[in-house]
Design a binder for these strands. Structure first.
Length: 575
RNA sequence: GCCGCUUUAGUUAAGUGGUAGAACAACGCUUUCGUAAAGCGUAGACACAAGUUCGAUUCUUGUAAGCGGCUCCA
């Protein structure tokens, strides 16, 4: 039994149950989706608390052993049959040919091309659940009316449903928004504003490590860090072409003293072109590779903001490479290797997507079809020549060119775009960038946009869930907790040990509150600190620390120097 | 931005048309402790604004923020 058939049949049963309780409802569409199904409809008076009732009615319908019987009818007849719903009529109009498919189960008739179980007895009445009510635009377009969508999850067996529910609960425990608060990594303030997180010293420590590591990796492939302002004249974005396409999502800033508009920058590339353009370049200077961690601002719609994964202020481990066409392949390859190295260190699963333009909507992009064809071909060659497995994403390209994106899957199965390498023939042209070639003639360089983990802030959020807050030692916000057994008797020694850690550059805290040892260990464990060092009389006598490792328990005594040597090794190797 | 839901102390969270009961955290006192919560006590909250009402934390409306979706994601 194909699970899609069960899911889609349940959508019909849902609609059938809805029409009984809400006969005025105008139905839209009801497909099977990953993990379940949904049905879109224009409905009045439906409340979330109605769902269990509808769910039960669906179970009753299943037990009636209804047959699904398909029949093709002419469009004229179909229009009469479905005259109640303008959405169905629109679908009938859109269908090519003279006949349309209909399916009957029990008293319910739906416009449908098929894909059902033969009889509802093939559905386990306890293997599905209606989960939520949401709004959804008709045919997925913001310009259309918003319908009500009822979501359900469904599996072949009740056991699989239980497993799915359990997995969702597990994922919730990893939610970076909750862990971020519990582990004191970042906060939001109503006064500061939505999408504008404040990182505590702990969160800042993690973010810094993420950025430092990206910087290390990109230095290895020749990128030099620059620093650029957070705002610039509107003119810059008019030249780059962003102003026309993205004006609505840029924050406008005004000066009291000049009439000209300024914008907070949503990306670094236009500014980087100006570093390139600051002096004459020779072919011998290329590639020119620059990297930037500047804060970026995007005026996202409020409903799109979410935790650290969608922000109004964030940075990117961003870089741009200006090179000749001959150098494209080599440059892409070195960046791709750096990204893969990073993903290995973070122990993340990913796939590579070749993101292409959608030739059906050229108005969404800059540049002509010929340039697009040329650049897309170049990227595809790189992937096939190096035997790199990839998928294709039509319509996923940037406005100025195709790209390779790294897609990773998080703990609850959501996919995130992290690293990216993008080819751009357009901006260099628009900014009039040139270099003098070996024959003395001026040529236009190619621009490569790239990021390793994308946005460190967003990646931070993903990592919190990836590690369930238990960061590896090198990333941990606090790496070591030093716990004197008696605050009074052992704090002095604890502080002496701490001084050595401070000199060694570790992140530590001394827990010298007047609390029981058990309680302090519990607190440190809940903060997921990798190493707890217990110090009491025995350790003082031996000039040592009692080492307790997260997840491993008591490791026994180690001399302070020995411990420093041990964790230094772990930090350098990022394990 | 759109559809729906939510908002009670720092956090979790009970409850009511007559202004709130608790746990953890905080603070104070006692305790000075060997690997995941010592004991006692103190203080602290109904998101904001308007309306209905003798009286609103509770009902209505609006605003803000959050959550689940949709749309978007250079």
């Amino acid at each position: 039994m194909e699970i899609e058939k069960i899911r889609h049949s349940l959508a019909h049963l849902l609609a059938s149950a809805i029409m009984e309780s809400f006969p005025k409802t105008k139905l839209g569409i009801g497909p099977a989706i990953e993990n379940g199904f949904y049905y879109d409809m224009e409905i009045n008076g439906l409340k979330p608390e109605d769902l269990p009732k509808i769910e039960n009615r669906m179970r009753e319908l299943i037990k009636e052993n209804q047959e699904f019987t398909g029949k093709k009818v002419s469009k004229l007849i179909a229009k009469k049959l479905f005259k109640q719903s303008p959405y169905k009529l629109e679908l009938i109009k859109d269908i090519e040919g003279k006949l349309v498919g209909t399916y009957q189960n029990g008293k319910f008739l739906d416009l449908c091309k098929g894909g059902h179980v033969d009889n509802t007895k093939e559905i386990d009445p306890h293997s599905f659940k209606l989960t939520k009510i949401a709004g959804a635009y008709w045919k997925g377009s913001e310009k259309n009316k918003m319908l009500t969508r009822i979501y359900g999850v469904a599996f072949a067996t009740a056991k699989e449903l239980d497993e799915y529910v359990a997995m969702q609960a597990e994922a919730e425990k990893r939610d970076h928004r909750i862990l971020g608060q519990k582990l004191d990594l970042f906060v939001f303030s109503d006064l500061v504003g939505p999408g504008l997180p404040l990182y505590t010293f702990r969160g800042t420590a993690v973010l810094k490590e993420i950025k430092n590591y990206s910087n290390q990796l990109q230095k290895e492939i020749g990128y030099q860090e620059v620093q650029t302002p957070n705002m610039n004249r509107a003119e810059l974005f008019k030249v780059s072409g962003h102003y026309d396409k993205y004006q609505d999502s840029m924050f406008k800033v005004s000066s009291h003293y000049t009439k000209e508009d300024y914008y907070l920058k949503p990306m670094n590339c236009p500014q980087h072109t100006q570093i390139y353009a600051s002096k004459p370049r020779s072919y011998k200077d290329l590639p020119v590779r620059i990297a930037d961690f500047a804060q970026l601002y995007r005026d996202e719609k409020t409903g799109e903001l979410a935790g650290l994964t969608r922000l109004r202020a964030f940075s990117q481990d961003d870089g741009h490479c200006f090179c000749t066409e001959d150098q494209i392949k080599e440059e892409f390859k070195s960046v791709l290797l750096a990204i893969q190295k990073a993903m290995k260190t973070y122990d993340m699963n990913y796939k590579i997507r070749l993101s292409l333009w959608d030739p059906k909507t050229p108005e969404k992009y800059l540049g002509d079809a010929k340039t697009w064809k040329k650049s897309q071909q170049a990227l595809e060659e790189i992937l096939t020549e190096n035997n790199i497995e990839h998928i294709k994403g039509i319509g996923e390209a940037a406005i100025y060119g195709p790209k390779m994106d790294l897609i990773c899957k998080d703990s609850i199965g959501r996919e995130w775009q992290l690293g990216t390498i993008q080819l751009d023939f357009i901006q260099p042209q628009r900014f009039g960038l040139t270099y003098n070639d070996s024959d003395g003639t001026p040529k236009t360089p190619v621009m490569i946009h790239r990021a390793l983990v994308g946005s460190p802030e967003r990646f931070f959020g993903i990592l919190i869930e990836h590690y369930t807050g238990a960061f590896p030692l090198w990333l941990a916000p606090v790496q070591i907790a030093i716990i004197p057994i008696s605050a009074e008797k052992h704090s002095e020694y604890a502080n002496n040990v701490a001084k050595q850690f401070s000199q060694a550059g570790f992140r530590f805290e001394v827990m010298s509150e007047n609390e029981s040892l058990g309680k302090k260990i519990r607190e440190a464990e809940m903060q997921k600190i990798p190493y707890l060092l217990i110090v009491g009389d025995k350790e003082i006598a031996a000039n040592a620390v009692g080492v307790r490792q997260r997840g491993k328990g008591d490791l026994g005594q180690l001399a302070v120097e020995e411990f420093i040597k041990k964790i230094n090794g772990e930090i350098i190797n990022k394990i």
